[in-house]
Nucleic acid binder design. Structure first.
Lengths: 215, 215
DNA sequence: GTCTATAGCTAGATAGAC
DNA sequence: GTCTATCTAGCTATAGAC
């Protein structure tokens, strides 16, 4: 609200437009001319705000991750039990993906498209750090649940992957997902159902039961 | 083996190279010059084998889906119970993703990147049909399991999405996945663990238990 | 079936006026 | 802070010789 930055208007608008376009068509699939013109600028004006295409891209990703982190941090740090915290993380994660469509695709791309940039770029570091931070806290939460005996003795990294697939992939799946479900992905009804399905799978599939069968 | 096509060599080599490149960098991120030269040809010679870039892309995707279909079809059609068929589908799917690295990324892209082509291309139709066919049989298998009472009353389309995330996303996750697991994704040890984790989650999370708690 | 040459276009990025 | 003009390089695709 009281940012020290003098000019907020253009920069934010560029980020909004770029977020939508990069989410839909990926880094290589978007040209800066289209970004600029959709934001109501000439192409060259972009370079006044961002020194390169990759800097713009990682600024977009960084903003997505900041929003996510802001939403998840209080839950991770909260005092509830591991299983309840996990439920609330899943709900908050899904809420964030739904409230900012495009986030899911952007994040999914960031997680599996590592060959887009041949050389490691300095502007990518904060983004990688933010991802590691969130994923690390999720993994720690799972380990805590296993240690406390409220979760089965799963591999926590594998479970992180499964949760990413169940949330981020699902809301990134767009047209395919809608064909599969036979309706919109983002309707409050389908969102509620998704949360319920993921939490149910998690509870039945992860929660320790009195008699846990072996492998 | 006894294809009626007279010249197999170049075409297959182009498909191999294109499969690897499209998997790594996506449709827009790959130029035909690089494909051609990696395959040992001049750029123009590509257009003798494929009339356009999109035709090459969907030929690559079609081959991936054909291999997958060939592997999964006997299992879908087999006479085992729904739960055992489901286990075997997961194992075969993972085997296919592991034996042909690149398939996972290619398929993941095909499932969530629907905005790459503004207009519907005729060469995309067989690919869409192949995806629908496989997904439809998986959904039918899940519905059969629910009807037979060996699976919980899950939403089968949501469960399809979860299974896609748990398999295709996982093996598409590349560098991120390896950082998370702390080692190679495709080692026989990690592959075995992945199968085990997914099947365990499925059995605990989907299999009907004597006392099924409500939502 | 592969090649050279080229058309026509767009990309990311820079220079410099205002 | 936005603009026009321009640079170099890349792109898909075609034409036509061999």
């Amino acid at each position: 609200m009281s940012e020290p930055t003098p000019t907020i208007g253009s920069r934010e608008k560029i980020l909004d437009v770029a977020e939508s376009l990069f989410a839909r068509r990926g880094y290589a699939g978007v040209g800066l001319r289209e970004v600029a013109e959709t934001a109501g600028l000439g192409k060259s004006s972009l370079f006044h705000h961002f020194r390169s295409k990759s800097e713009l891209y990682f600024a977009v990703l960084g903003r997505v991750l900041d929003r996510m982190d802001e939403r998840l941090r209080p839950i991770f740090a909260g005092g509830a039990g591991p299983l309840e915290r996990l439920d609330r993380i899943i709900e908050a994660l899904i809420d964030e993906l739904v409230e900012h469509p495009g986030s899911a695709r952007l994040l999914l791309r960031a997680l599996f498209e590592d060959d887009d940039f041949a050389e490691p770029l300095p502007e990518a570091e904060p983004v990688e750090g933010a991802i590691e931070s969130i994923v690390g806290r999720l993994d720690a939460l799972l380990r805590e649940g296993v240690a406390a005996g409220v979760l089965r003795r799963v591999s926590t990294p594998h479970t992180v992957q499964t949760l990413i697939g169940a949330t981020i992939y699902h809301f990134a799946s767009g047209e395919f997902g809608e064909t599969l479900l036979g309706g919109p992905l983002l309707s409050s009804e389908e969102v509620r159902r998704r949360k319920q399905e993921v939490k149910a799978l998690l509870h039945h599939g992860l929660a320790a039961t009195p008699a846990t069968p072996g492998s």
